[in-house]
Design a protein around this nucleic acid. Structure first.
Lengths: 158, 158
DNA sequence: GGAAAAATTTAGCCGAGGCTACATTCCTGT
DNA sequence: ACAGGAATGTAGCCTCGGCTAAATTTTTCC
């Protein structure tokens, strides 16, 4: 069993990460929607999060309080510089986590699903280790050509 | 960008896992305390979780509602069969996650800290992949044949 | 132009999980 | 044996993140 204070610190860290997970998920989603549609609407965020619109709006209100998003009433959502920065970091980390899970043998569908929850708890040091591991394993990979037909053959193995 | 329904499902899965994370952490901790001290007290749980004792008590009340723990007033905590089963699974998974993080190059301290949050989001399929990867990597190490004397030693050194 | 539909926002409820302050019960040391 | 300190429990408050219901604003369509 670990030392009590060290263990308490780890649990506290995990709790803190849980509270930022929602922020990261939302800004990442808003960035994706903006890139895909030229705008990010609250209704789309709600639909993709699998929550009702009021819930999404309440959470977006929190993003605004935290200075990650701006929005004028009845208009779309816009990331601030801080929001964009956070979204970029979250997206990059997400991709590394998915790639690592696949590299160690996780089925693609499981990797994508698990990464959604795991990514928020990956520290800088661990992320660096993931990147190093992937670089050794697949030195020529990492390009941006994103055609991924492999998704379709995956049955719902959940 | 993934399909909207699939993405919503992933987010929903992550939310559900977040709600069971506390249960798993607590039963695992109670099992460890019981093994180490012959009893599990609420004050110890609070201290090791890094929360105040009323918070721990409230969460333990939830464990009782969920049938994972029994307790008589002013007495220690006891896991039910369901609680023990959950604790064993959580502990085994925790160990695999830590080992995997170390195996791919994460510093030990980061691995232990990150695993605390990540473990709750590792699906069965991904866990199996982790085990396979570790078995290939370290064939003679850590196999399931002998009992792991290291566990008992660590318990006493607190 | 105006009515119907769609999107957005507000209001209010709930449970989970933090906290402080205070009450109670156990246990230990003198 | 009992007084004081430690452990346990209770009460009440907070925020976060779900929800439904209803109000408001925008958009669309006739």
């Amino acid at each position: 069993m670990p030392e009590a204070p060290a263990q308490a610190e780890r649990f506290g860290k995990a709790r803190a990460e849980r509270s930022t997970a929602l922020l990261e998920d939302y800004v990442e989603l808003i960035a994706d929607l903006f890139a895909a549609n030229g705008e990010a609407r609250a209704a789309d965020v709600a639909r993709r999060q699998g929550v009702t619109h009021p819930t999404a709006l309440k959470n977006i209100a929190r993003l605004r309080r935290e200075g990650l998003v701006t929005a004028r009433p009845y208009r779309g959502l816009f990331l601030t510089d801080a929001g964009r920065k956070l979204a970029d970091a979250a997206r990059a980390r997400h991709r590394v986590v998915v790639d690592l899970l696949i590299a160690v043998g996780a089925p693609r569908e499981a990797a994508e699903a698990d990464a959604e929850g795991m990514e928020h708890h990956v520290s800088k040091a661990t992320l660096k280790a993931f990147e190093r591991f992937l670089a050794e394993r697949r030195p020529a990979d990492r390009d941006e050509a994103p055609q991924r037909q492999a998704d379709e053959d995956e049955s719902k193995t959940s």
